[in-house]
Amino acid sequence: MPTIRVQTEDFDAGAEIAQIRAGNPRVGAVASFVGTCRDTNDGDAVAAMTLEHYPGMTEKALAQIVDEAIARWRVLDVTVVHRVGELKPGDQIVLVVVSGAHRGEAFAACEFLMDYLKTRAPFWKKEQTPAGARWVEARASDDEAAARWVAGTKDAA
C-alpha cells in the first residue's frame, strides 16, 4: 500500500526506506530521492521558504501520480512525504521512495514521480530573500521534464 503524507514535521529517509522493505522479500531494489531547501535561487540568497498547499487536492493529486507510477512500472510500493510550512536552507522538503523487483523500474518510477509531483501537485513556495519575500515561479524546465514521460522518450518499461 502506498504511503502518502503531507506534513510540517521533518522525515527520516532511512526509516522510510526500512519501512518499505520490511517484510517484503520480493523487493530487490529501492530507489529514493530527497529534495532539500537551497540557500540560493535565481542568484539571490534565500534565508527561508514557506510552502503552501491545497489541503484535500494535494493528497488526491499525489495519490493519482503514485497510482500512475505503480501501474506504469509495476513497482511494488511507493512512499511520498512532502513537507509544508516554514523551511530553512538545508531542511528536507520532499521524499520519494520506490521499491521494486529490479533497479530499472525503481529508478524510472522515482524520477517520474518527482517530475510529475513538481508540475501537478498543488504546492507553492515563497522565498525570503534580502529584497523581500517572493513567490517562486514555475520553471519551463520542469514542464519539459514532465513532458518527456508523455512522449515516451524516457520510458524504461
Partner: peptide
C-alpha cells in the same frame, strides 16, 4: 485540474492558483 471548458455547477469547489512549484 480543469480547463476553460470544464463545467461548473451548484455545489462545486473551484480553486484558482498559479502554476505549482512544489518538490
Amino acid at each position: 485540474m480543469a480547463g476553460p471548458a470544464t463545467a461548473v455547477g451548484p455545489g462545486d469547489e473551484v480553486a484558482f492558483f498559479p502554476p505549482v512549484t512544489g518538490g
